[in-house]
């Protein structure tokens, strides 16, 4: 064992000048970010009594406006359902165009991919502002914003699900002489259906959570109720609203999980 024929490798690789400079830059940027984000321990400590007061004023939750809150909550959920359904329906053709295997042309493929990325990278609140400015205040603007958000999420995963399916049945249908539409409906969609449903249920959960905040910019739903209560210092009412939002989100998540488990 005295003479190993190969030298031991070094424990650490020596970084190149460029990567060394890069590490330094990243470290510096992280430090700067902390002050840029206004992170301050003293502010936080000074804020603790305020948080305590606010929390104590929130209890017990006030139940006298249950009717109005219930109505706003229902509207929120309806926006989520509407936006998700419209988004999922539109995601099916977009998913086909954005899949390498089924897209009719490479330019269609590129363009659809780009469109979907754009939908996904612009935040839902920005879409809500856009639709409030174009179709006016109210739940329709929120529904459209949720639809776009759903497409950004679903169309991408639909395209991936389509790319992953087994090509055998499609080849069999091609050999039979079936046309493109028949191949999509007879082999592609049935095979991708569990994945589609799974993604759609995730979208509904996501849309339910998003729909809560859209009200802040006037795009309908319970968000506006929450904002008004906070602005008017009616914290006991705000806590009721938060509680209801929590219940809605939990209910949708539970339902969605049940449905997805059934598919497995």
């Amino acid at each position: 064992m005295t003479e190993a024929s190969y030298p031991l490798p070094n424990r650490f690789e020596r970084p190149s000048v460029v990567s060394f400079a890069l590490y330094i830059f990243i470290a510096w940027f992280v430090v700067v970010s902390f002050s840029g984000a206004g992170i301050s321990l003293s502010n936080f400590i000074e804020g603790i009594p305020n948080m305590g007061t606010l929390l104590s004023e929130m209890f017990p939750p006030k139940m006298d406006r249950l009717g109005a809150i219930g109505k706003a909550l229902l509207e929120t959920f309806q926006m989520a359902i509407g936006g998700t359904i419209l988004g999922v329906i539109l995601s099916v053709p977009l998913g086909v165009f954005a899949s390498r295997t089924q897209s009719p042309h490479v330019l269609v493929y590129r363009f659809t991919r780009l469109l979907i990325s754009f939908f996904r990278s612009v935040p839902d609140l920005v879409w809500a502002l856009f639709f409030v400015a174009t179709v006016g205040l109210g739940p329709f603007a929120g529904t459209l914003a949720l639809m776009i958000d759903t497409i950004g999420f679903c169309a991408r995963f639909f395209a991936e699900a389509i790319e992953e399916i087994n090509s055998g049945p499609q080849e069999a249908l091609t050999a039979i002489g079936a046309n493109r539409t028949s191949r999509l409906f007879c082999s592609v969609f049935p095979a991708a259906m569990p994945s589609f449903t799974n993604t759609a249920m995730y979208s509904l959960e996501k849309a339910t959570r998003s729909s809560v905040v859209l009200g802040l910019v006037g795009a309908g739903g319970i968000g506006i109720e929450l904002k008004v209560s906070m602005d008017m210092f009616r914290y006991a009412e705000a806590s009721t609203i938060i509680l209801f939002i929590f219940l809605l989100v939990v209910a949708v998540e539970t339902l969605s999980t049940k449905i997805r488990q059934k598919l497995m």
């Binding site: 055998g168 049945p169 080849e171 069999a172 007879c186 082999s187 049935p190 259906m193 569990p194």
Partner: peptide, 10 residues
Amino acid sequence: FQHHNLVPRL
């Protein structure tokens, strides 16, 4: 085909 290539979910 060698593998029947039927659509499994139908």
